[in-house]
């Protein structure tokens, strides 16, 4: 029977200060992560006309607009690559990140009926909402492969690092999502600030422009934005674009992502006890 292994004794008492992470409990409920992710996917595409095509349409249309205005009119440098592929390659991980961040931040408030009725590790809600974006990413990625074939670009062996970069994007989204979802329970301002935050974040990531546009002395500071490492890593792995010190940039981005994730986990756990009463 489920959870029998942990049924020995549960002590319920007020927790104080910084709680232990207790990730074992999350592991015991891993199937719930699966079912919630699966629910998000099922529900998202039921009663939609275009279904999974939405996963491609969003980055595709953004790419078209970017190509017209930034690529053709403003003549933004694209490291010698065709601007459509240059921007679409960046929009893929960005889209995954933005969606994951958004869903995770709203996950607690959106599932308040579950929070107030039933016990389960609360961490599962933001976790599941981050994961459900991966399927959309996969669909949009297939389209990218088609585009690359069209432009005659062949991926490098760097392709193998893609899962790591993907994980980096998800870790960042989860880390920030943990902070924001917990804050959102207490202050609904988060809901209003999110679209704005996402938009600003996109401008400070190398999506529209190339990282080479950023003055060299600022690059390492620029890398503190974890999405810098992710996006530039994608361009290198798929399109073979060259960036100096890319390894260092990705390392800085990863370090930052881990700091956000770990601090997010602790903050989330600390605030967790208030969720059912305050949501």
């Amino acid at each position: 029977m489920a959870l029998r292994e942990q049924t020995a004794v549960t002590i319920i008492r007020p927790s104080r200060g910084w709680a232990a992470l207790d990730l074992r409990d999350v592991w015991l409920y891993r199937e719930l992560v699966y079912f919630l992710t699966w629910r998000d996917l099922k529900v998202r595409y039921k009663q939609t006309l275009l279904g999974a095509a939405w996963a491609v349409l969003q980055p595709f249309l953004t790419m078209v607009v970017f190509t017209i205005f930034f690529g053709n009119f403003a003549k933004v440098s694209s490291e010698g690559l065709p601007y459509p592929v240059f921007s679409y390659t960046a929009l893929l991980p960005w889209g995954l990140f933005a969606k994951a961040l958004n869903d995770a931040s709203r996950s607690l408030v959106g599932n308040s009926h579950m929070l107030t009725k039933i016990y389960f590790p609360r961490l599962i809600l933001p976790l599941a909402s981050v994961l459900s974006g991966v399927v959309d990413f996969g669909i949009a990625f297939l389209f990218l492969l088609g585009m690359m074939a069209y432009y005659g670009i062949y991926p490098t062996w760097g392709l193998l690092i893609l899962p790591v970069l993907l994980l980096l994007a998800l870790i960042t989204a989860l880390g920030v999502g943990l902070w924001l979802s917990a804050l959102n329970v207490l202050y609904r301002d988060v809901g209003y600030a999110l679209p704005f935050l996402t938009q600003l974040w996109m401008f400070v990531s190398p999506i529209i422009y190339s990282i080479n546009t950023v003055p060299e002395q600022w690059r390492l500071v620029y890398a503190l934005n974890p999405m810098t490492g992710v996006v530039q890593g994608f361009r290198w792995a798929l399109l073979g674009s060259q960036t100096e010190q890319l390894g260092l940039i990705i390392a800085i981005s990863s370090g930052m992502a881990l700091i956000i994730l770990i601090s997010g986990l602790f903050y989330f756990r600390r605030m967790e006890r208030l969720f059912a009463d305050r949501v």
Binding site: V9, I12, P14, M114, K117, I118, Y119, R273, D277
Partner: peptide
């Protein structure tokens, strides 16, 4: 409190076994 939805402010409870709650049917 006993089903761990919310934390107590003081005191404690010791539970021997898995708790199932029917606080609200159809949640989720």
């Amino acid at each position: 409190i006993l089903s761990r939805v919310t934390e107590p402010t003081e005191g404690e409870a010791e539970i021997h076994g898995r708790v199932g709650s029917l606080l609200e049917v159809g949640t989720g």
